[in-house]
């Protein structure tokens, strides 16, 4: 493990989670904000494959589960992010083909991640809302994630790729 590289990935994760919680509520729609951590996970998975993506996803999800003001059962976002990382890693060859394909990947991942989180809440009886409300939130979240993805995805993917090529030079 290369320490600067790991540190940079960690900074990206912390930054995404902090911005999401402390800053983005300025633009929240019914409390729903762009899920920056999810975009980071998708970018990691598409850029570097499911194994790296799932590791980033687990860390980002766990941070989102534990960082204040989270109150739900910990591990729910971690599970959701690991699953979408696996998915994004599987379709990464297609996702890189065009910007539209990348956006579609983010859209599908957003839908799946929020749904997995919602379903885990229903199973655990933890902060479950009526299904209609949940679908509304999932829909708004999807639109937000697709809206911010074009701004973030290229940069994040370039960043993750750069850390890799450095690693290979060593």
């Amino acid at each position: 493990m290369n320490i600067p590289r790991t540190g940079m990935v960690a900074i990206v994760i912390v930054l995404a989670v902090v911005l999401q919680v402390a800053v983005l509520n300025l633009i929240a729609v019914n409390g729903v904000v762009p899920n920056l951590a999810l975009v980071v996970v998708v970018a990691a998975s598409v850029a570097r494959g499911p194994q790296f993506g799932a590791t980033v996803g687990f860390c980002a999800g766990l941070l989102l589960d534990l960082a204040p003001p989270a109150d739900h059962v910990a591990g729910r976002w971690a599970l959701a992010f690991v699953l979408v990382a696996i998915l994004a890693g599987r379709v990464r060859a297609d996702a890189r083909r065009s910007p539209i394909a990348g956006l579609a990947t983010v859209a599908v991942c957003s839908f799946i991640a929020t749904s997995v989180f919602a379903l885990s809440g229903v199973v655990l009886g933890d902060h479950a809302l009526p299904a209609g409300e949940m679908l509304g939130v999932i829909g708004i979240a999807l639109l937000w994630d697709v809206a911010v993805a074009p701004l973030l995805l290229p940069g994040l993917m370039a960043l993750f790729e750069r850390t890799r090529s450095r690693e290979l030079v060593h």
Partner: peptide, 15 residues
């Protein structure tokens, strides 16, 4: 208030 939990977490908590 310095942080607001995203609605995606379906819980309404603030820091």
């Amino acid at each position: 208030v310095v942080g607001m939990g995203p609605m995606q977490s379906f819980s309404r908590t603030v820091t």
